[in-house]
Amino acid sequence: MDFASEPIFVWMSQFAYQPGTVYAALIGMMMLSAVGFPLPEEVTLISVGILAFMGANPEHFPPPYPGAPVVNVHTASIIAFTAVVTSDFIIYLLGRVFGRKLLYHPRVHKFFPEDMMKRVEEWTHKYGAYACGIFRFTPGLRFPGHLACGMLHYPAWKFLVIDGIAALISVPTQIYLLAHYGEPILKYLRQFKMVVLAIIGLVLLYMLIKWLRNRFLKAKLTH
Rank of each mutant, 00 (worst) to 15 (best):
F3P: 04
E6D: 07
E6C: 05
E6A: 12
I8E: 07
I8Q: 10
I8S: 05
F9L: 12
F9V: 01
V10A: 14
M12S: 09
S13W: 06
S13H: 08
F15S: 10
F15H: 10
Y17R: 04
A24L: 15
L26H: 00
I27H: 05
G28I: 01
G28R: 06
M30F: 03
M30N: 13
L32C: 14
L32E: 08
S33W: 03
V35Q: 03
G36S: 07
F37R: 12
P38F: 04
P40I: 03
P40N: 04
E41N: 14
V43R: 06
T44K: 00
T44F: 06
T44H: 08
L45V: 09
V48P: 01
V48H: 00
G49C: 09
G49P: 14
L51A: 00
A52R: 00
A56S: 15
H60Q: 14
P63V: 10
Y65F: 15
Y65G: 02
P66N: 12
G67E: 05
N72L: 08
H74M: 14
T75E: 07
A76T: 06
I78M: 11
I79C: 02
T82H: 01
V84Q: 05
S87I: 08
Y92L: 01
Y92V: 01
F98R: 11
G99H: 05
R100G: 03
L102F: 08
L102C: 09
P106L: 03
V108S: 11
H109S: 13
K110M: 14
F112K: 12
P113N: 13
P113Q: 06
E114D: 11
E114K: 11
D115Q: 15
D115A: 13
D115H: 15
D115L: 08
M116L: 14
M117T: 07
M117K: 09
K118Q: 12
R119G: 00
E121G: 05
E122A: 02
E122R: 12
W123M: 14
H125P: 03
K126E: 15
K126L: 15
G128C: 01
Y130F: 07
Y130C: 04
A131T: 15
C132R: 10
F137V: 14
L141E: 11
R142F: 03
P144G: 12
G145D: 02
G145F: 00
A148F: 03
A148H: 01
G150M: 02
G150H: 03
L152E: 03
P155L: 15
W157Y: 10
W157S: 13
L160E: 00
D163M: 01
G164H: 07
I165F: 10
A166K: 07
I169T: 00
S170G: 11
I175P: 02
A179V: 00
A179C: 08
H180A: 04
Y181D: 02
G182H: 05
E183S: 13
E183R: 13
I185R: 02
L186W: 05
K187C: 04
K187Q: 14
Q191M: 11
F192V: 04
F192G: 04
V195N: 14
L197I: 00
I200S: 04
I200L: 14
G201R: 00
L202I: 06
L205E: 06
L208Q: 09
R213A: 09
L217P: 08
L217D: 10
K218M: 15
K218P: 07
K220W: 08
T222C: 10
H223V: 11
